[in-house]
């Protein structure tokens, strides 16, 4: 069983308080994803480098492309290191399927679907979608994205967001949120600001690591995933794979939020570049001799 505490911020949002998610000092054992692996491997060497050669505060290499499909209203592809995710957005459109009778009168219904390609992991996955884990991920995705989308602009309509993990190497959820944000931008859906997610962990019991890879996830200790609205500094969702001691949580959280801000910068740049490129035909972003943006 996964133990997690999720918090949700919507609309005005609320600033995070970690006391709520930590539980009392002691209690009955909480099931954990795995027994705390006795770490033979050091996540951080004495020289201050991680297993793959990054420093504790460095993200993996991010590459992204906006508008990869023409069929969908919006689409994006993102690579965070070896984690590769494709996201597509349909809508806003009139409620269809199961949601037909459930549509809301004052805001849009956000429908998310998370799935992993059969070839995304080292060993082939039997059930790529619809299992418990995917369902949980879908719910978490919706929580993070609903916080960013201005749903009140689209009453009685539905927005579908499909994300597919093509290759998994840690931080799948984060890459999915980031890809979905780009796809939403591409689709022209109104956003409060970017929803950006980043994970963080703890090395040697003291130094927080940002953007955790699969290797670090499986050898390291607890893992914190945060989806945030980085400009206002609001936390949309927070999940822990294991219990954190409250001494550690603030610094890990801070590291994760810094990661979110860094990712935001990269995504924003990518969006601007994309818009500039697609709009070049009509002269967007070009500067005339007098220095005025046309």
């Amino acid at each position: 069983m996964d133990c997690h505490a999720a918090m949700r911020g919507r609309g005005g949002g609320f600033s995070y308080s970690h006391a709520a998610v930590i539980g009392s000092r002691c209690g009955q054992p909480v099931g954990c994803r795995r027994a705390a692996a006795s770490t033979a491997m050091e996540l951080l060497s004495d020289q201050g480098l991680r297993l793959d050669g990054r420093r504790p505060d460095e993200l993996r290499n991010i590459r992204c492309k906006i508008g990869v499909f023409s069929q969908a209203d919006g689409s994006a592809y993102i690579e965070q290191g070896n984690t590769k995710v494709l996201a597509t957005v349909y809508g806003p459109h009139q409620p269809r399927g199961q949601a037909k009778n459930k549509f809301l009168f004052d805001e849009a219904l956000v429908n998310c679907q998370y799935s992993m390609a059969v070839f995304s992991t080292g060993e082939r996955k039997r059930r790529p979608r619809g299992d418990r884990k995917s369902q949980e991920m879908s719910i978490h995705l919706r929580q993070a994205l609903e916080a960013a989308i201005r749903t009140e602009l689209y009453p009685r309509s539905q927005i579908d967001i499909y994300v597919e993990v093509l290759q998994a190497d840690g931080g799948n959820y984060c890459a999915c949120v980031n890809a979905a944000t780009l796809a939403l931008v591409d689709a022209g859906v109104g956003l409060r600001e970017y929803a950006v997610a980043c994970s963080a962990s703890l090395a040697n019991g003291e130094i927080p690591l940002v953007d955790v890879s699969h290797l670090e996830e499986s050898t390291g200790g607890p893992n914190l995933t945060v989806a945030a609205l980085p400009i206002s500094g609001q936390v949309a969702l927070m999940e822990m794979s294991q219990r954190f001691h409250c001494d550690h949580l603030p610094k890990v959280l801070e590291r994760a939020l810094e990661g979110c801000k860094d990712i935001h910068r990269i995504l924003d740049e990518a969006v601007r570049k994309h818009v500039e490129e697609t709009g070049r035909a009509s002269g967007w972003g070009q500067v005339d001799r007098a220095g005025i943006v046309l």
Binding site: D52, G53, R54, N61, N82, G122, D169, L215
Partner: peptide, 27 residues
Amino acid sequence: MLTSKTFLKKTKRGNILKIVREHYLRD
């Protein structure tokens, strides 16, 4: 800070499993 060169490293475990890991080179 990041030299954006990605290397592939393959390792084998008990049953043969291809593991691809990033390996960052720095300046």
